[in-house]
Simulated assay, not measured.
Amino acid sequence: MSTTRHTCPECDSLVRKQNRESVCTQCGLIIAEDNLDRGPEWRSFDDDASDPKRTGAPLTPTRHDRGLSTRIGRSRSTSPRRRRRMARLRQQHRRSQTRTKRERNQRNAFIDIRQHISALSLPKVVHETACKLFRQAQNAELLQGRSIEGFTAACVYAACRMVSISRTKTEVVGHTKATDNEFDAAFKALNRELDIALGPPAPAEFIPRYASQLGLSAATESRAHEFAIDCRERGISNGKNPSGVAAACLYTAALELSDEITQKDAASVADVSPVTVRNTYSALQS
């Protein structure tokens, strides 16, 4: 609050300037009002605001053109002639966005990745990471002689592993057109050539999702996490399917806390056989 040394024209009292108004302190008369915002027209969240960006949407790695191209929406006109014209414009615009076969492959791959992300209910960070991995694989010439569908599935699976989100290979491949062999070839190429250094998934990553699908209580889920830690420390989970180990931990915790669950129920959500659950359960009890 700053004070301006001039007087009110009505009562000759002191006028105080606050924000955008000059108001008399005695009678409350508004002497002047400025509705213009004198501040900057841009906002910057970076440390260096010397060159602020004033136009355009932010860049996104989930589109082949990084989101810089214009999109032509649907016309609400009732005129058939205008609708046909807009359809032709959209078609020509889509063709102009990809000048080479490489760009067309990248655009189609990003569309497939977006569909996988939606089908598996994965967060935005997995979407962006998967698109970055595919772009790196294409720049490294890893797609030659391999399936694009296999690489899109492998990128989604690798992105889940990188951000510690539990999705099995069967779940990822089940939502794609790629075969198991195409997925394996693409994932091995990603892991070998890009050196992303993916470790085996931990059984604890699968426990919250499986507990939710089985309708188990929070106490059972917490106890299953303790069993998962015990499996790791005792080496029970070494060389075993982490999804099956997670199902066995949930089954063991449910029996201990009197939750109604069978070995078949636990095995079905983890896509393993009841024998796998039974063997890990026996190892935990020993």
Rank of each mutant, 00 (worst) to 15 (best):
Gln92Gly: 12
Ser69Cys: 04
Pro40Gly: 01
Ile30Ala: 00
Lys53Thr: 09
Arg83Pro: 01
Ala57Met: 08
Gly56Tyr: 11
Ile31Ala: 00
Met86Pro: 01
Ser69Asp: 08
Asn105Thr: 05
Arg76His: 06
Pro80Arg: 14
Arg84Tyr: 02
Arg81Gly: 00
Asp34Thr: 13
Arg94Asn: 13
Lys53Ile: 07
Thr98Asp: 03
Arg38Cys: 02
Glu103Gly: 05
Ala32Thr: 09
Arg104His: 10
Gln97Asn: 11
Asn35Cys: 00
Gly56Thr: 08
Asp47Cys: 01
Arg95Asp: 09
Lys53Ala: 04
Arg71Glu: 07
His64Gln: 15
Arg85Asp: 04
Ser77His: 07
Arg104Asn: 03
Ala32Pro: 02
Ala57His: 08
Arg43Asn: 06
Arg66Gln: 10
Leu68Trp: 08
Thr70Gly: 02
Ser77Pro: 07
Leu59Glu: 09
Pro40Met: 05
Met86Gln: 11
Asp48Ile: 06
Asp48Thr: 07
Ser50Val: 02
Ile31Cys: 01
Leu89Gln: 14
Thr55Ile: 11
Arg102Gln: 15
Arg88Gly: 01
Arg99Gly: 05
Asp37Lys: 08
Leu36Pro: 00
Glu41Tyr: 10
Ser44Arg: 05
Arg104Lys: 15
Gly39Trp: 08
Ser79Val: 03
Trp42Thr: 13
Lys101Gly: 03
His93Thr: 10
Arg95Phe: 04
Ser50Pro: 02
Gly67Glu: 02
Pro61Thr: 13
Pro61Cys: 04
Lys53His: 10
Arg76Phe: 05
Arg90Gln: 15
Thr98Gly: 03
Arg54Met: 10
Glu33Leu: 12
Gln91Trp: 14
Arg88Cys: 00
Ser44Trp: 07
Gly56Pro: 03
Arg90Ile: 00
Arg71Phe: 05
Arg38Thr: 09
Ser79Arg: 14
Pro58Lys: 12
Gly39Phe: 12
Lys53Trp: 00
Trp42Ser: 06
Asp47Lys: 09
Asp48Pro: 10
Arg83Ala: 06
Leu68Gln: 14
Leu89Glu: 09
Thr100Gly: 05
Leu68Gly: 03
